[in-house]
Amino acid sequence: MSYWEFLAEYLPKLASGALMTIGVMICATLLAAAISILFGLMRLSRNWAFQGPATVYIEFFRGTSLLVQLYWIYYVLPLMGLTLTPFVSGVLALGLNFGAYGAEIVRGGIQSVPRGQWEAARALNLSVSQQMRSIIIPQTFPIVLPPVANLTVELLKATALVALISAVDLMFVAKQINATTWLSAQTFGTALLIYYVMARIALIPFLRWLEVLAARKVGKA
């Protein structure tokens, strides 16, 4: 079987798997972003009731392995009466794991805004929420976006793990095709190429565009 015949037969299947990968990635990114902002801000709080849980959460999820978290959510939570589908388990594990890394980026980004900006905002008699919204947050974007871009690419790669809890993503489809055809080089090679295309041709240019946009916005402001 030539490679073209292989593609003609199996590319549609791989593409449908890739769609699932994209779905998992988008949902997990949104969840991770929400968690990052919430816990990043909690981490900065001077109130122990906020800072303590945020620190424990971040250290816990950064200190253990994503696969362990995924298995725990998928195999152990049902024993406690909470059964989740593979898709939901995957999104939850990825969101919680990457949210912990993202929270540290958010914290670093806010801390790196010079003190003078806070002081000037206060001197102008802006309320705390106004200071955050119109002075501090816009300035964190250009600082935060490059590490966020790295993390998003890592998240795309990490979505492959959901195949191990039988969510039908690109990796899962590739494993299935490999098990029936044993054309391993073609199957996993094509899967690798699809992941590469998603990262290099779609995701990374989009994130670079966001970086440029954020830098320009702050430059103009």
């Binding site: 690419v153 790669k157 990490a158 979505t159 492959a160 793990l161 195949a163 191990l164 990796m171 590739a174 494993k175 490999n178 391993s184 080089a185 996993f188 090679g189 899967a191 690798l192 992941y195 590469y196 990262a199 290099r200 990374i204």
Partner: peptide, 10 residues
């Protein structure tokens, strides 16, 4: 930019 898991299987 490609997943470790897929590389491992490859």
């Amino acid at each position: 930019s490609t997943p470790l898991l897929v590389q491992l299987f490859f």
